[in-house]
Amino acid sequence: MRKVAEPEAAAFASPVRSTGPAASWEPVRRAVEEHGSVLVHARLGDWTPPDLEAPGLVRLLGEDHARCRTMTHRGIKARFIASRLLLKHVACAAVGATPEAVELAYRPGGRPYLRGPGRIDISLSHTEDLLLVGLTRRGWIGVDAEAKDRPMLGLGTDAQVCTPHERRMLARIAQERRNGALVRLWTLKEAYSKAIGQGMRFRFTQFGFGPQDRNPSVLRPDGTRGTGDEWTFHTCVVDRAYTVSVALFDAALAEQRSRHD
């Protein structure tokens, strides 16, 4: 498990690996209790039921089961079921409920949220064999994951998703590390846009990050800072194969700052 460097430790615990529904959920409960947030990653195979048509899934998936029944591609269906089961188990560990009692709903644009429990925000991402869930009691959270060696350089990606400041900073990075830096920027932008509920509707060329910042913050296109301390960001590598980023908005801190402005 990868340690999170200070000063981010107050906001994030080390990512928690889940090996399946029967594994201990104490690390998740402890992370939420101590940090107010948790990041959980898992492998698709550990969360895919042997029988995708098992009767018990009706109760576990709730309203999502009707959506699941319309899926004809086995791979898509398996990923949908596995990701929702993981999301529900993480949520129930945080709120002290059973997976059957946790109800998922979706905002316009497809962002999932929990019905009922107050002040809990969730985010979901998946890529290849990885499932990723973020949960917070602090305010808003967004997570994203990509294969750390996903080819992005030389495909025009930097021109499509980077601000002028980011492109200048990327040009100063050694060629062999530049693609990894671009993957990191992509996941940070995805995580932030999910946290604010915009998804891909917020043009990635309109905000940025420092490609090598230790404690990143949102930057305007010219490189000046665009957010305050109420936002915390973190990037790490899980399973030695995936770059994972999380964006966290601390609602209490934002309210405190607004009272003093």
Rank of each mutant, 00 (worst) to 15 (best):
G180M: 04
A31E: 04
T98Y: 07
F207T: 00
H73K: 11
L188I: 06
A78D: 09
R84G: 12
T187E: 07
A97H: 11
F207G: 03
F12A: 02
R17F: 14
V28T: 04
C162N: 05
E255W: 01
R17C: 13
D158H: 00
L132T: 03
R59V: 10
P50I: 09
P21H: 08
M152N: 05
I173F: 07
W25V: 02
T19I: 13
V4F: 08
P7E: 03
G118K: 13
F207E: 00
E190F: 11
L153C: 13
V244Y: 05
H165Q: 14
L86G: 08
L188F: 10
T127R: 04
V133R: 08
V95F: 03
Q206W: 08
P112Y: 04
S37L: 02
E63K: 13
A13Y: 01
D213P: 09
K189E: 01
C236L: 15
T72H: 13
T163K: 11
L60S: 11
A10Y: 05
H234Y: 07
S245K: 06
S83M: 01
A254W: 08
I81E: 03
A78K: 00
L124I: 12
Y242R: 01
R84S: 10
P50Y: 07
T205F: 06
R111A: 15
L170P: 02
E190D: 07
P15K: 10
E166M: 06
P21F: 10
A251H: 14
P221T: 04
G139Y: 03
V95L: 13
R43G: 15
